[in-house]
Design a protein around this nucleic acid. Structure first.
Length: 479
RNA sequence: CGGGGUGUGGCGAAGUUUGGUAUCGCGCUUGGUUCGGGACCAAGAGGCCUGGGGUUCGAAUCCCCACACUCCGACCA
């Protein structure tokens, strides 16, 4: 299109340089800004609004299953962090410490929380006494700090926002059920709200969370065929409760340790949304979390009645429960089209003098670019219908990308060829040996993503050692 | 943490090789004309060139040292 020449702020093409495209979108869609503190970012109003919508949906889900929100301290005494030794050895390299209080050196240094298992356990050790106190179903929305060496918007911040659920149960069965329930909660959130298809699976021992007995995750494929872990759910057994001396008297009057879980989703998932759905015109937001679901653009708005007509459309949509914005600024219509495409607004509603004569408006979809003339009488129903259609199409496109780029392999050579070529998910059997997992990393450059919960049950061979085995596993290059 | 790249008004760049006190586009402000895919005209405002040392009569430019961002690895969510 000739008009494209006027795009002064065009972003890097997605398939030319995906990393640069990603950074361009984060900045130009006004999601994020850099700060004077290395590795830390500002979530700007539009970026934070996405997070708020994610919070609203997830928080309601958590509450529906009986969880309540709490707030734990930001600082952890070193002695507390050291109680569970796998945990501290996993997190020690990325802890930041507070060593001074005012001008006084502290007797014991305090870790700025990288995660809060130890804080929850410390608290529970004080308050849990009886089986009647269980389960403890807690969650907190907070930020945590990990001293990362490199950072990228949303994908890796030194400080990031997340929610961490922590629960305590009387039996292992109950705790495992909780772990699975929360994994499924995340999976459905991704699929039904974010239009992101996920693989539900268990992590290998090597990829397991520090201190966990089992780690489950949902894995998504980004447009560049790399993997992003969108959420995790851990089963801890009673390792932490034992280390922290949490015990309760059960129904048989026996003093026993309870079983624990934790699960989390962070702002990283916003990076996943961007990299799953975006295109060369910028962001494409899933309608169900888009801060603006429809933007009304008046055309030739100096002409009599146009602005009033546009305003009426906005009011009707707002009354129908649609998150809608009217852009009455004096930028040209074309400028506004490009602007809201960059910001990923799912629907654009145009109204101008010609439409007013016809008692209609124009609705353009962000995902396909398709424009439809809609009689004004059908505005609300059509907008809702299109929002669902956009969601469904976004999901279908993302699923197609994953399916087209998932390959069954039986040898290391095949794995290497695919990883060095276009990339994608590799599906194979795995014998369970760490050496074979490491060989995949060293020779093919891929790490294990997960062992899917749905196992085929068939027998095959490990692509590295050739041994007969039946565990299905996915490999890929991860963010 | 290793290897590359970059740092000049809000953004993107030119100027650096060959030192002489900063240029352009976009954006911003004001006024006017426009408005169906990033409008046009006019008049303005805004930078001691990432920071700190050094060389020099004189440094955006040459030399050291920091810092930040970015890409590729390693590591990690």
């Amino acid at each position: 299109m000739a008009q494209d020449k006027r795009q002064v702020d065009a972003i890097t093409a997605r398939d030319v340089d995906f990393a640069q495209w990603y950074t361009d979108v984060c900045k130009k869609a006004e999601l994020i800004d850099y700060t004077s503190t290395k590795g830390m970012f500002v979530l700007r109003p539009y970026g934070y609004a996405i997070w708020e919508n994610i919070q609203n949906v997830l928080d309601a889900d958590f509450k529906r299953t009986g969880h309540t929100n709490v707030s734990m301290p930001m600082l952890i005494p070193e002695s507390l962090l050291q109680k569970e030794k796998d945990h501290i050895s996993g997190f020690a390299p990325e802890c930041a410490w507070v060593t001074m209080g005012g001008s006084e050196k502290l007797e014991e240094r305090l870790c700025i929380r990288p995660t809060s298992e130890t804080l929850f356990c410390d608290h529970w050790a004080r308050v849990v006494h009886s089986w009647r106190d269980l389960p403890m179903l807690y969650n907190q929305w907070c930020s945590v700090l990990r001293w990362e060496k490199t950072s990228r918007p949303f994908l890796r911040h030194r400080e990031f926002l997340w929610q961490e659920g922590h629960t305590l149960h009387a039996t292992p069965e109950e705790a495992i059920a909780e772990t699975e329930q929360q994994l499924e909660c995340y999976a459905q959130f991704c699929e039904n709200i974010l239009a992101m298809p996920v693989l539900r699976g268990r992590k290998t021992l090597k990829e397991q969370f520090a201190g966990a007995e089992a780690t489950y995750a949902i894995e998504c494929m980004m447009h560049d065929r790399k993997a992003l872990q969108a959420g995790t759910s851990h089963y801890f057994g009673n390792g932490f409760p034992t280390a922290f001396d949490i015990s309760f008297t059960d129904k048989n009057n026996q003093l026993v340790h309870p079983y624990e879980t934790s699960w989390g989703v962070s702002t990283r998932i916003i990076g996943g949304i961007i990299m799953t759905h975006g295109d060369d015109n910028g962001l494409i937001l899933p309608p169900r979390i888009a801060p603006i679901q429809a933007v009304v653009i008046p055309v030739a708005m100096h002409k009599p009645g146009v602005l009033d007509a546009a305003s009426a459309l906005k009011d009707r949509l707002a009354a129908a429960g649609v998150r809608v914005k009217l852009d009455g600024s004096d930028n040209s219509p074309g400028w506004k089209y490009a602007e809201y495409e960059m910001k990923g607004v799912p629907l654009r509603v145009e109204i101008g003098p010609k439409d007013m004569e016809q008692q209609q408006c124009v609705i353009a979809r962000r995902d396909t670019g398709e424009k439809t003339f809609v009689p004004l009488a059908e505005l609300e129903s059509k907008v809702k219908e299109l929002l669902d259609a956009v969601h469904d199409n976004m999901y279908a496109m993302a699923l197609k990308n994953r399916e087209d780029n998932t390959f069954d392999i039986t040898t290391l050579a095949q794995a290497k060829a695919i990883a060095e070529g276009e990339g994608g998910f590799l599906r194979s059997k795995w014998c369970g040996a760490l050496e074979c997992e490491l060989a995949m990393k060293e020779q093919a450059g891929v790490t294990s993503r997960c062992m899917p919960l749905e196992q085929s049950g068939t027998e095959g061979v490990c692509p590295v050692c050739g041994k007969k085995c039946s565990t299905d596993i996915y490999w890929g290059v991860a963010y």
